[in-house]
């Protein structure tokens, strides 16, 4: 029994020695990694400072004014004037896209407000059985609306004239 205790104690000493050795070198590794990380952090911070300065330089008012003057016609840019203020009430709501989520509600509203007697029950049955009314619509297979048509609708809703389509001039890309 006693010799077992001695053997056990010796084994414990050996194990703790091994553990101490591992922990020591793991710590040294970690310290080296910390130093490397800190110097990386410093380098990144410097890079960030340089990029911030460059961003501010590229956004300086004189350069932006020059760019606005060069591309102002295409982008529709000009200095703000006191007449450029409006009110929210003057903005018209645009119609929902034809095949989008608002179309169902619009169809329901239109059916309810129309005078046809058969339309109302069909509209009420609509939310209960969405598959049936949708099927004839899809069977009609309308083509998807073109981008130009949608843009035109938007501009008409806002009461703003349609912009001319012009190719965008990008420096260096031909």
């Amino acid at each position: 029994m006693r010799s077992l205790l001695y053997v056990g104690a010796l084994a414990l000493v050996a194990l703790s020695g091994a553990w101490a050795y591992r922990v020591n070198y793991a710590t040294l590794d970690a310290l080296a990694r910390v130093e490397a990380l800190q110097s990386e952090i410093t380098a990144e911070r410097e890079a960030i400072a340089v990029l911030r300065a460059e961003w501010a330089w590229l956004n300086r008012p004189e350069r932006l004014a020059r760019l606005a003057a060069a591309f102002g016609d295409e982008l529709g840019l000009r200095p703000m004037r006191p007449t450029d203020f409006g009110t929210v009430a003057a903005v018209a709501y645009q119609p929902p896209p034809p095949h989008g989520p608002g179309a169902r509600a619009e169809a329901v509203a239109r059916a309810e407000t129309s005078d046809a007697p058969g339309a109302a029950p069909a509209a009420e049955a609509g939310p209960v059985r969405p598959a049936a009314p949708a099927a004839p619509r899809m069977a009609a297979a309308e083509p998807a609306p073109k981008l130009e048509e949608m843009v035109g609708a938007l501009h008409l809703a806002l009461g703003v004239p349609l912009p001319e389509r012009r190719p965008l001039r990008l420096a260096g890309l031909e």
Binding site: P61, E62, R63
Partner: peptide, 8 residues
């Protein structure tokens, strides 16, 4: 020391 705003 740099002044990104230019002349402003």
């Amino acid at each position: 020391r740099v002044y990104p705003a230019g002349h402003e």
